[in-house]
């Protein structure tokens, strides 16, 4: 506790860094995954190879991935972001696809047939109906990103991993405990929040609550 009071500025800085890295990863990863998924929905033949490739990327151990990226783009936040975004694609693309495919085709046919434009159909109908499964993908992405981002401090990307690595090297239990607490707390809290959001979106998609 003393440690936290004394070094609260450093703890805060590292936490903010960690949150920033996670959110930046999520936003950029979504911006990539959404068009990729919409494309795959139109060209079904690519779905299996793309998902297989993303699965392959996902199983590369993070240390190996960082070691591979550092010679290419140097150290710091860049290789961390690249790796985290690459890992995120599997859950995001897979759940985006599953979300849109879960919609009863009659709903889409009725919407198109009555003359809804494709933009309106997407925002008003398809997205709200696919949202529960998409949020499920975001939830998995965020929890894994928080975990892997911890390791990214090894390549100077900052974040709470700094605390953990320092604690290990300096044999400083306070640093280890605070680092572990904050990083797991962050993962647990975001998981719970998104889980609630997911359930709410599901109730809405089924027509059980109004927003």
């Amino acid at each position: 506790m003393d440690y936290a009071i004394k070094h609260y500025d450093q703890l805060l800085l590292l936490t903010v860094q960690h949150i920033f890295l996670t959110l930046a990863t999520l936003v950029i990863a979504l911006l990539i995954a959404l068009p990729v998924s919409l494309l795959l929905l139109r060209v079904q033949a690519f779905t299996v190879p793309v998902l297989a490739a993303l699965g392959l990327v996902y199983v590369v151990p993070s240390m190996a991935m960082f070691a591979f990226l550092v010679p290419l783009v140097g150290v710091g936040i860049t290789p961390a972001l690249i790796a985290l975004i690459a890992y995120s694609q599997l859950f995001l693309v897979r759940n985006l696809l599953a979300g849109f495919k879960s919609i009863n085709p009659s709903i889409i046919e009725a919407g198109r047939g009555m003359g809804l434009g494709s933009l309106r159909l997407f925002w008003r109908i398809e997205l709200p109906l696919a949202l529960p499964i998409i949020i499920g993908g975001i939830r998995l992405t965020i929890t894994t990103t928080i975990g892997i981002a911890t390791i990214a401090s090894w390549i100077n990307a900052g974040g709470l991993g700094v605390l953990l690595f320092d604690g290990l090297y300096q044999n400083n239990p306070a640093k280890i405990i605070w680092g572990a607490l904050l990083v797991s707390g962050m993962a647990i809290v975001s998981n719970q929040l998104l889980f609630r959001l997911e359930r709410k979106a599901l109730r809405r998609a089924k027509g059980e609550v109004s927003l």
Binding site: A110, G111, G115, I125, G207
Partner: peptide, 23 residues
């Protein structure tokens, strides 16, 4: 234009296709 045409034509299908998240 495609959607202007469709708006002039009512369309009812076997699968009904009501939007489940809307009242």
């Amino acid at each position: 234009p495609l959607n202007e045409l469709r708006i002039q034509i009512g369309y009812v299908i076997q699968g009904i296709g009501l939007f489940p998240h809307l009242t």
